[in-house]
Every structure is written in C-alpha cells, then in structure tokens.
C-alpha cells in the first residue's frame, strides 16, 4: 500500500526551479533513499513534504490525505517525523524536555488546564513523561535525560534528534543526512541503528544521504536527483550500474564508493 504519493511536484523560487516534476510512490514499510549532488533539490523536497514550502505545482498525498498547503505542525501531527541536516535540537532544554515537547500535537489539555492544573493535566503530564523516558530508555539515552544537548557529543546529539523525530509517533520518518559529520565507526553504528528502528518501530523511512555506504546498505529503492530532476531510480544495484548517475554524481570516471 502506498503511504506517500507525490505527483508532478514543482517548486520554483523566483526564477530558480529547485524541484521539477518529482514523482514518488512510497510503499508502507519501505526504506527509501534520495541522493544527488549538492543543490539537487533534495532538502527542498523534504521541506515541501513537511510543509515549510507550499509547492508551486503538484500534489503530495500522505496516507490518503492531501497535505500540500498544510502547516508543518499539522503535517507532523498526521504522522511525519523529521530530522535536519544540521542538528536542530533545542540546545538549552534538557533532552527529556526535547522529547516531551514533541507531544504538543496531542496534549489533550487546554491552556486553562495548564494554569489551573486540572486532573487531565496531571494525568497527561505523567503519561507524556513516562512515554518520553521509555523512548529514551529504548535509545539508551536514559542517563542523558537531564543533560543539555549542547553538552553532548555530536553522535549522541544525532541519536537524540532521531529519538525526538520518533516521539511524534510518525508513520513516515524523514532523515536528512543522518550520517553527516559522523566518524566511520559511528556511521556503522548508525546503519545498524536505522535498520533496528525500521524493524522495531514498524515505520517507513525516506532518507537523504551523501555517504553511499549508508544508502547502499539500507535502502531498497533509491531515487537520484540532479538539478531538480529525477535522473534515475531503482534498487541499489541498478543505481550503481547506471551510467547517468555515475556521471552526475562523480563526473565521468570513478567508483561510487569513493
């Protein structure tokens, strides 16, 4: 069954066409990759899906609802979690708060409830905290719960950000270059980690990544973007052999694992 269906997506910024005619049909439970040289329009596609831009043309359908034109928080509430290329945690708030705040979409108590401390307020705050701690425990971050993200090592920050994206209980997880800035040992760990998330959280993943090792190890289906256009798609093996991809990505000669 298709979870995310994008037809003929076009995004123009003034004279620049960042994305032209992007199509996607992402099956539930699949693990998809989006690759391409810098400036190919990958992050723009993420921003379109998560609602930061309103597409110039085309439709984005998620889980049977049309989501283009919706605000980011509405899109998130529908079940799309996301991480960023540069880690965007709330750095002056504890890790626990980072996870807890992502429950804003289903707080189930009102402003008055918060000010006058209704019964529902106590119940929900307790539940939210328990859920958050449980999630942190699963991610092995329980002892970092009261730390500020800015004081944590980079790799741990990445893990917190992924945990935060998962805390909105998404059906679709968008990972924007999760391996950027990680050491090769961390990258190996990340690959296992994403595999594990994919299996345990029963989730669909769409990721942008520059490191071929990650993409080729994880993704079942890969799309290659260049100058906003999709130039190839298929399984890792097909992509590796595709001469157009090699040309766009690496110039005329070269090994894709370089």
């Amino acid at each position: 069954m298709s979870l995310l269906k994008i037809t003929n997506l076009v995004q123009r910024f003034g004279g620049l066409t960042a994305v032209s005619g992007y199509q996607a049909d992402i099956k539930e439970g699949s693990l998809n990759g989006l690759i391409g040289p810098n400036g190919a329009g990958k992050t723009t596609i993420f921003n379109l899906i998560s609602g930061f831009y309103v597409p110039t043309e085309g439709t984005i359908e998620f889980d049977g609802t049309l989501i283009n034109g919706k605000k980011p928080h509405e899109v998130t509430a529908l079940g799309i979690g996301r991480t960023f290329q540069n880690i965007r945690l709330w750095h002056d708030m504890t890790v626990l708060d980072n996870i807890r705040l992502s429950q804003h979409y289903h707080l189930q108590y009102s402003l008055a409830g918060a000010l006058f401390r209704s019964k529902q307020y106590y119940k929900r705050e307790r539940e939210i905290k328990e859920e958050a701690l449980k999630l942190l425990d699963i991610f092995g971050l329980k002892k970092e719960a009261d730390e500020f993200p800015k004081n944590l090592p980079y790799g741990v920050q990445r893990r917190v950000e992924i945990a935060r994206a998962l805390s909105v209980q998404p059906k679709l997880l968008l990972l924007d270059e999760p391996a950027a800035g990680l050491s090769s040992a961390d990258v190996k760990e990340l690959i296992d980690h994403i595999k594990w998330i994919h299996k345990n959280f029963d989730i669909t993943i769409l990721m942008i990544e520059h490191q071929m090792q990650v993409i080729m190890n994880l993704c079942e289906d890969i799309k290659v973007l260049d100058f906003g256009k999709t130039i190839a798609e298929g399984s890792p093996e097909e992509i590796q052999k595709n001469p157009q991809v090699i040309k766009a990505y690496l110039g005329d000669e070269g090994d894709i694992y370089a």
Binding site: P72, W90, M93, H104, L107, Y109, A114, R164
Partner: peptide, 22 residues
C-alpha cells in the same frame, strides 16, 4: 507545563518547534 514550554522552544529554534508539532 509542556504546553507553555512551547514558547521556550520557539525562542530556541522556531523551525524545530514547528516541525515537532508545536
């Protein structure tokens, strides 16, 4: 409250706040 802390999230990173359903 988690509700009110939303404004602290806005101070620290508005884009992240919006994407985390606030």
């Amino acid at each position: 409250s988690v509700y009110g802390k939303g404004i602290i999230a806005i101070k620290q990173d508005e884009v992240a706040a919006e994407i985390m359903s606030i």
